[in-house]
Simulated scan of single mutants.
Amino acid sequence: MDLTNGFKIIGIEVRTSNQNNQSQSDLGKLWEQFYSENIIEKIPNKISNEVLSIYTDYKKNYTEDYTTIIGVPVSTLNEIPNGLFGREFDKENFQKFIAKGEMPNAVIKIWSEIWEKDEELNRKYTYDFEVYDAKSQNGENSEVEIYVAVK
């Protein structure tokens, strides 16, 4: 499924920052909540079982506050269960990266490389996202696609 043309999502969110390892703690808790509360089963109108982790509402860039959403793509936002929220994301230009290896370390490594290239990538800071599907559950052979919005 091509998500670069925009999509709707229902899931859970947290406002966080990369400062003082805050995001590591917040995102760990968000993922834990997503799985422990079986959020995926509560989401209606799913168009896939791919789990998306979206980074958006950047205050400025990756060094400032931003919002992370973990959820699933849906066909409509007409029905949003209590405690969850829905959001629509427009079409965007992306540069695609693939994190390969043990998760979450492989994803953390790729984000470090992206941050190092922040200027040359000409990032847009609208929203970026990761796609977790069957390939992301293969131990040290896992793969996660990362899409970074660029100008």
Rank of each mutant, 00 (worst) to 15 (best):
T56I: 08
Y125I: 05
Y127T: 02
A99G: 09
N93M: 03
Y125S: 05
E92S: 12
N49S: 12
G71R: 04
I108G: 09
K124W: 02
W111E: 10
S75P: 05
I54M: 02
I43V: 13
F94M: 03
E113S: 13
G83V: 04
T126W: 00
I80L: 10
T68F: 02
K91V: 03
A134Q: 09
L77W: 00
F94E: 03
K100G: 00
G86A: 10
I43Y: 02
N105P: 01
K117L: 14
L121Y: 11
E79W: 01
V72E: 05
L52R: 01
N78A: 13
E79Y: 06
E120D: 11
E120P: 00
E64V: 01
E113P: 11
D57T: 08
V74F: 10
L52W: 01
Y58E: 03
K135L: 10
K60V: 13
I108L: 15
I110V: 15
E120R: 13
I69G: 02
G86D: 05
W111L: 13
I114E: 07
E119W: 07
S112I: 13
P44V: 03
F97L: 03
V131T: 09
Y125A: 05
G101P: 06
W115K: 15
I114N: 09
F85E: 02
G101D: 08
A99D: 04
Y55E: 09
E88Q: 12
I54K: 00
W111V: 12
P44Q: 06
D118E: 15
F129I: 01
M103I: 14
P104R: 06
M103H: 09
V72C: 12
Y125D: 08
Y127L: 03
L52V: 07
G101I: 07
S53W: 02
E50T: 13
E92M: 10
T76D: 13
K91I: 02
N105D: 15
V51D: 00
